[in-house]
């Protein structure tokens, strides 16, 4: 017996490209953009969202027949908030500096629309195993964009990746800097994240014409 049927595989693969939560469904942008100036923060944020979405989707899916539909939003928020508190405490214990950088954005995973969106659209109507796959699929879709943006912004803005200089030393003028290359300080400021995501959307839709919006 295959662990993943074809349908299940699609649950994971779809959100990576053609149904990406950020570039197509426009969800979860709130917490995604502000922390992508560094690759490390992007990766940690992605892992946190992966954890919250995987577990959260399973919990909601298990509870789906017990939750009265009128108060389901509050129940969902409480489940997410409990998971996010775990993430926050773990970060504070093992990566204190990073949790300072992420500051309130860890807390804002709670209101990350991807999570609520998947709870509403999928976990409330499907079994735990499929909900789990859907959760991690969407979290990977989120992670792909976050890491791409983080990679571009850190590489072009600071010339480093994970804090390690990869293009040479800008002060001693070694590596690329010897040829007159300069870091683009523009990539570090927050609005650059929006422009990078805008360009990613542009590239994706130019590749797949069916995604182009009506005027």
């Amino acid at each position: 017996m295959a662990l993943l049927s074809k349908k299940d595989t699609n649950l994971i693969l779809d959100p990576l490209a053609d149904n990406n939560p950020i570039t197509i469904q426009v969800l979860g942008i709130c917490s995604a953009l502000a922390i992508t100036a560094e690759l490390k923060a992007s990766v940690v944020m992605s892992i946190s969202v992966l954890f919250v979405m995987g577990i959260g989707n399973v919990v909601i899916s298990l509870l789906r027949n017990l939750i009265p539909s009128k108060i389901r939003i509050i129940v969902q928020l409480i489940v997410i908030a409990a998971l996010v508190i775990i993430v926050d405490q773990v970060l504070k214990a093992f990566a204190y500096e990073l949790s300072k950088t992420l500051s309130v954005f860890v807390g804002l995973i709670i209101t990350n629309c991807i999570i609520m969106g998947r709870f509403e659209a999928f976990a409330l109507g499907n079994g735990p195993w499929r909900s789990f796959l859907d959760g991690i699929g969407n979290a990977f879709g989120y992670a792909v964009i976050l890491i791409m943006v983080g990679f571009l912004r850190e590489l072009l803005g600071s010339g480093t990746l994970f804090g390690v200089p990869v293009l040479g030393d800008p002060i001693a003028k070694t590596g690329l800097y010897a040829f007159g290359y300069e870091n683009n300080g523009f990539m570090i400021i927050p609005p650059a994240a929006l422009i990078v995501v805008g360009v990613l959307i542009w590239i994706q839709r130019a590749q797949n014409k069916s995604l182009i919006e009506e005027a």
């Binding site: 570039t23 426009v26 400021i189 927050p190 609005p191 650059a192 994240a193 929006l194 422009i195 995501v197 805008g198 360009v199 959307i201 542009w202 590239i203 994706q204 839709r205 130019a206 014409k209 995604l211 182009i212 919006e213 009506e214 005027a215």
Partner: peptide, 23 residues
């Protein structure tokens, strides 16, 4: 607006430019 950029894409870029203005 170029087709692939229509709607969401251009909104992102405009917001980015407005953000730079607000800086």
């Amino acid at each position: 607006v170029p087709g692939p950029l229509r709607g969401l894409g251009i909104t992102f870029i405009i917001t980015g430019l407005m953000g730079i203005g607000f800086q």
